[in-house]
Amino acid sequence: MALTFDAAAIRLDDFRLTADWQTEAGERIALIGPSGAGKSTLLMALAGFVPLASGAIRWNGRDLTALSPAERPVATLFQEQNLFPHLTVAQNLGLGLSPRLRLDKAQSARLTKVLERVGLAGLEGRRPAQLSGGQQGRAALARALLQDRPILTLDEPFAALGPKLKADMLDLVAEVTAGITVLMVTHDPADARRFAPRTVVVAEGVAHPPAPTQALLDDPPPALRDYLG
């Protein structure tokens, strides 16, 4: 159960990024680095929104390159727009189970259970605009969980939350994603320390292989040192 970036290279106009490493099953990894370095772009390539110029991304040895976003074993929490504002919480979550929103009994039960797990029980009928920022994050996380994918990517979805709320959300993610490989973009070293045992530094066109977070942040390499200041 490993995610492999096999000499994966992205080229968009002037932008270049390469990655050549792999994760271990079920581990949580932070992606850190200067803005514009390509942290989000790497996740978008994994999710299938940005094409690879060369190389491959594999899951358990299977090449994902030709698969559409929905066919990939990846659930994504974007920076924003994680919920459709015209649909209720229940409908938004239901889309994680069935794109046609036809849920059977078992699926409905799962939906209720996941809502409870993220602390949103009873809010099924609300629209996103009627939720607080923290609740919106929880709803999006719940939907990602219902998608039941072995990989979850987080593109700073909680950046707008306050420190306490964000910490709570990260703890919640850690708690509910046992067995899932999680890749999280962050610009805050504290998030990485709290959440991810290993961290990938993305800088100067390279996504470096994951290294233990603690050691990395205590003694940062030059590229990271500039960013951390």
Binding site: A47, G48, F49, S68, P69, A70, E71, V74, A75, T76, F78, Q81, N82, F84, H86, L87, Q91, L95, G96, P99, R100, L101, Q147
Partner: peptide
Amino acid sequence: QDYGRLADSLGLRGMARLRWLVLPR
């Protein structure tokens, strides 16, 4: 631009996309 990626990642396609995303929005 706003919801295309989300819909793609959820596999909303064809009639389902029309019904749950395009028509209401």
